[in-house]
Amino acid sequence: MSVIELQGVEQRFHARGTPDGYLTALKDATFTLQSEPPQIVSLVGQSGSGKSTIARNILGLQKPTAGTISFDGKDIFKLSRAEYDNYRRNVQPVFQDPYSIFNPFYRVDRVLWKAVKKFGLAPDRTKGLAMIEESLDAVSLDPAGVLGRYPHQLSGGQRQRIMLARIHMLRPAFVIADEPVSMLDAQIRKTFLDILLDFRRDHGMTTLFITHDLSTVYYLGGGVMVINKGSIVERGAVESVMHEPSHPYTQLLLDSIPQPDPDQRWTNRIHVDDSGTQTPDSAPQEPVV
């Protein structure tokens, strides 16, 4: 069993124009992700709340300014060679933007071949190709339709599913999915979420699913953490958090879901000011002059 543990992780960036010269993107983030039993944990928050920073920290792309991130009890920034290989193999991302995730210079196959070669997945080319085809099949892509193509010849949904095929080949214990569906259209979105659920069931992958969209969280189920201005303000099972939110910000997020009821539109108004703070307002709005 593997464990990712965040202990008091803080990320500050140099920023001009702030009082102390720093922008704190993430404050005292402490949580654990376990691979047994496989779970899906969603991390919800608005733009700029620090969700993507957590993903970059966990993936080792950004060293936090304070606190530790450990994989199986070892700090991920102080791993030995073998430990590093193991960590990379078991913690893999799906990024938000399916367009810039591919190097436009190469065919899309390269991303998959790279995974085969770098992680020694197959002993030879024939086995590697069989593996790639099997994985593309698992994410319902036609190998003949995507292999040998350049990224700009595929749709966003196809590209994002190639990233899932890569995950399928690597079978990591943890998938860090940073807003993977925010740039996909509705029906591809559901396909994508279903594949993630399949991966959990069939291959025991634990997913940290980062999103700003509560309806996808509801669909995935499992656990949820709500992050606001760099702090995790609420955590729990999706059902309890959704039905009995304890933090005002969570209540706000829930109020932000568009209701398919035209009459409600006029009663549930939300103010968003420039700092990103929102206040729910059920009273009728003053008309703007």
Partner: peptide, 13 residues
């Protein structure tokens, strides 16, 4: 800072 550079990094490049 392109995502494909990040992807290469998590692919042990």
């Amino acid at each position: 800072s392109r995502p494909y550079v990040d992807l290469a990094r998590v692919s042990k490049a």
